[in-house]
């Protein structure tokens, strides 16, 4: 198999894994202000308590794999997106430690501070992921020297902002469906109402983004003509989105959650299809774009890394399964909780 293509696909898998897994815990963070009592806030935090850290490792591994497989892309994007990436780091730091520290003191002011930093960190990180995806879809001013030729404000455009909003809505929906699985009683009934509202907001944005992309982002659709089989994924995506309200209505929260997992996987897939074979599209001159061949590491390194991935990924999937199995079921606040 073409190693460059293999790494493009594997990065897609890591990104989808990250979006699905960290997506629900970021979503729980976005929904955090909507519960009022201290006990309920602790339930929300503890629903993701044992899991968020492992979920975030998917991002770290995605970053490491991007560095190893496509160092030019890693270097161009990370330095070009300097200010948004710093904001992302602050968001992730605050989010991580606010969970760790929040319940360590009884003081309401203390808890309020960490509650808001948990919400703010989750919402900002999600939004910035969306903005980054939107910018990648639309193309960026990349010069012949492979350096970003613009300022931070060049990244603030309507389409990336719209994708940022869609990301927040998607993760909020995903998080609310996850919470439905982890809560019970009166709180669960409220979460059930959130499911509907979050789905409504998601659907409106999803349709709007789809139309906007078809009309305004010609890059995104070029591969659909060349590779007609991707229409199968479009059909599956529509089914998955449609199955979310059906499953909520029928009281099958697990099916609803898996449908939103499938939706996120499909959206990540479309992102990959829109980019391929490029990773960073130059809006100045298409010849200056970074693609899976001109931005990659050597074939030898890609082969070594493939072997490392084949060796490591089965373990990763096994741990992930074990951890989710150990922490299945409803949240119980106990001695070891946050």
């Amino acid at each position: 198999m073409d190693l460059n293509l293999f790494w493009f696909v594997l990065l897609g898998v890591l990104l989808a894994g990250y979006a699905i897994l960290d997506g629900f815990d970021l979503g729980v963070g976005i929904l955090h202000p909507f519960v009022r009592t201290d006990a309920e806030r602790r339930i929300l935090m503890n629903s993701i308590g044992p899991l968020w850290d492992g979920n975030e490792v998917w991002l770290v591994t995605f970053g490491g794999a991007l560095f190893a497989a496509f160092p030019e892309v890693y270097a161009t994007v990370f330095s070009g997106f300097y200010t948004p990436f710093m904001a992302l780091l602050f968001a992730l730091i605050f989010r991580a430690v606010s969970m760790e520290f929040r319940s360590k003191r009884e003081s309401p002011a203390w808890r309020r501070f960490w509650d808001w930093s948990f919400f703010g960190g989750s919402a900002l990180a999600t939004f910035l992921f969306g903005v980054a995806v939107g910018n990648a879809m639309q193309g960026m001013p990349i010069g012949p020297d492979r350096e970003f030729q613009g300022g931070t404000l060049d990244l603030v455009r309507p389409y990336p902002l719209l994708i940022g909003a869609l990301a927040v809505a998607t993760f909020a929906l995903h998080g609310s469906l996850y919470l439905h699985l982890k809560t019970e009683g009166e709180l669960q009934q409220r979460v059930h109402r959130w499911n509907w509202r979050a789905f409504g907001i998601f659907l409106v944005l999803y349709l709007f983004v789809t139309i906007y992309t078809l009309v305004q982002i010609p890059l995104a659709t070029r591969n659909f003509e060349r590779q007609p089989w991707v229409w199968i994924v479009v059909a599956l995506n529509i089914l998955a989105v449609g199955n979310i309200p059906r499953a909520i209505y029928r009281g099958r929260p697990l099916a609803a959650f898996f449908s939103s997992c499938a939706t996120i996987a499909a959206l990540t897939f479309f992102f990959g299809v829109a980019l391929f074979p490029e990773l960073v599209h130059s809006s100045l001159n298409p010849a200056w774009s970074l693609d899976v061949y001109n931005a990659a590491s050597s074939q030898k390194t890609l082969a070594i890394m493939r072997n490392i991935a084949f060796l490591g990924m089965p373990f990763v999937l096994a741990y992930t399964a074990v951890i989710f199995w150990v922490f299945r079921g409803k949240v119980k606040i106990g001695h070891f909780s946050y």
Binding site: G54, V57, V60, T61, G63, G64, A65, F67, A68, A69, F70, P71, E72, Y74, A75, S297, S298, T301, I304, M305, I308, A309, G312, M313, F315, V316, Y319, T320
Partner: peptide, 18 residues
Amino acid sequence: GDVFGSALAAEGIFAFFL
């Protein structure tokens, strides 16, 4: 990237998940 990135990626796959 070709050299150093590999070590970082290996750290992610072998160490951080564990």
